[in-house]
């Protein structure tokens, strides 16, 4: 299976978009979708994908057309523009898509509202739809271990807190150090799920999720 590396799954989908003629040419669905996607860039940490369990990394973009390589090549064009949705996650495809639908059904409806043949009512029909649009290929992003997202975020959190601990306590008496370390363990709770690093957060402010 070229889409998988260990527990990492690389999903690539090409979802054809309706053109403006379906709206009597009164507006362009592509412009509308692009503006929606751009909002995820403008408003910090607003991507709905942060709420989807086990998402390592997700990208949305619009494929306008294929590039004409100039003479003497033949000029070719796509019949539609495509929403490209690509995501790397931990686990199995069906389980992930089900989790995605259950986490963000409204966002899914907004993002795919102008996609051809998108008639999704529940997690099952969403999974069926996405699998129809799936391109079987190996588009895997670097930078993830094989662990579940929760484990990765917890590790990240502990690493961050531990570096703070080291800076704060260097050179203190061993007895004090031991006390401080016990406090550190109590605070970070390494064997429990929380506190942990918030999913989808891109800067160092407000990174901790307590429950």
């Amino acid at each position: 299976m070229p889409n998988k590396a260990g527990n990492l799954y690389g999903l690539t989908t090409l979802c054809p978009l309706l053109n403006s003629s379906v709206h009597n040419d009164t507006f362009s669905p592509v412009i509308r979708l692009r503006e929606l996607l751009e909002q995820y860039n403008i408003v910090a940490d607003s991507s709905p994908m942060r709420l989807v369990p086990n998402t390592y990394l997700a990208r949305f973009f619009i494929l306008d057309d294929v590039i004409f390589q100039s003479f003497p090549y033949q000029e070719e064009h796509l019949k539609s523009k495509y929403l490209v949705f690509t995501v790397n996650f931990h686990g199995e495809l069906e389980q992930y898509l089900e989790g995605m639908y259950n986490a963000i059904p409204t966002d899914i409806a907004s993002i795919w509202r102008d996609a051809v043949g998108f008639n999704v009512k529940d997690a099952q029909s969403f999974t069926t739809y996405i699998k129809k649009c799936q391109v079987e290929t190996t588009f895997l992003f670097n930078g993830s271990t094989d662990m579940s997202l929760a484990d990765q975020l917890k590790s990240l959190y502990i690493k961050q807190e531990f570096s703070d601990f080291v800076f704060k306590n260097q050179g203190v008496e061993p007895s004090v150090l031991l006390q401080e370390f016990k406090k550190f363990i109590q605070m970070t709770n390494p064997t429990e799920s929380f506190p942990t690093w918030k999913a989808g957060v891109s800067d160092l402010n407000d990174i901790i999720q307590y429950k």
């Binding site: 403006s20 040419d25 507006f27 362009s28 412009i31 070719e76 064009h77 019949k79």
Partner: peptide, 10 residues
């Protein structure tokens, strides 16, 4: 496939 013009974008 003919190259369609994105009228609404112009």
């Amino acid at each position: 496939m003919e190259n369609r013009i994105d009228y609404h974008d112009i």
